[in-house]
């Protein structure tokens, strides 16, 4: 049994056929070929699949796909505007905040969720903001510095 799922993905409407058991990560990666959310653990532990649903960061692997019907979903594919990198993308690149790069999309989304709510976070608030995202290469210091640089206005759009 499959259901039609309609939602907004990075500002554009999409429709797709999904099973009731498909997670949002299955829908994005396997049905829509939107692969920035990564399948690191499929278990809610690593944060590599973090996306925004109506502006809130969620783990796509723990979100049943059908629950995003009619909602706005944002992924890293939607961060660039008019071909220009988002300030967080520029800052991550210039601060070497991506090593193997596998956790990076989830980190970027977690950072965006934080700055959208709190544009001037303290270092502690940044650490708290990315506390759900694991990086096995150990780029946490660079990630925090990149987010601090954006918050300090060094990467104005």
């Amino acid at each position: 049994m499959k259901y039609v799922l309609s939602f907004n993905l990075n500002g554009l409407p999409v429709d797709t056929l999904v099973k009731a058991t498909d997670t949002l990560l299955d829908v994005l990666r396997e049905k829509l070929n939107v692969v920035s959310p990564k399948r690191g653990c499929d278990n809610g532990d690593c944060g590599a699949c973090t996306v925004l649903v109506n502006g809130e960061p969620v783990r796509a692997c723990l979100t049943i796909g059908l629950t995003v019907a009619g909602k706005n979903v944002q992924t890293v594919e939607g961060l660039q505007q008019d071909g220009k990198l988002h300030p967080l993308q520029r800052a991550f690149h210039e601060h070497y905040a991506a090593q193997c790069g596998f956790c990076t999309p989830g980190m970027l989304i977690a950072a965006k969720a934080l700055l959208d709510k709190n544009p001037k976070p303290t270092r502690e608030q940044i650490v708290e903001g990315i506390s759900g995202n694991l990086c096995r290469c150990g780029t946490y210091v660079e990630v925090v510095e990149a987010i601090q640089a954006v918050a300090a206005g060094k990467y104005k759009e």
Partner: peptide
Amino acid sequence: QPVLRYDGIGHVTARTRYVDDIQ
């Protein structure tokens, strides 16, 4: 001099294609 990573833009734009991204 610091040299920016040649694959850095791919990583921050999620254009880097890992094997599980291939369908």
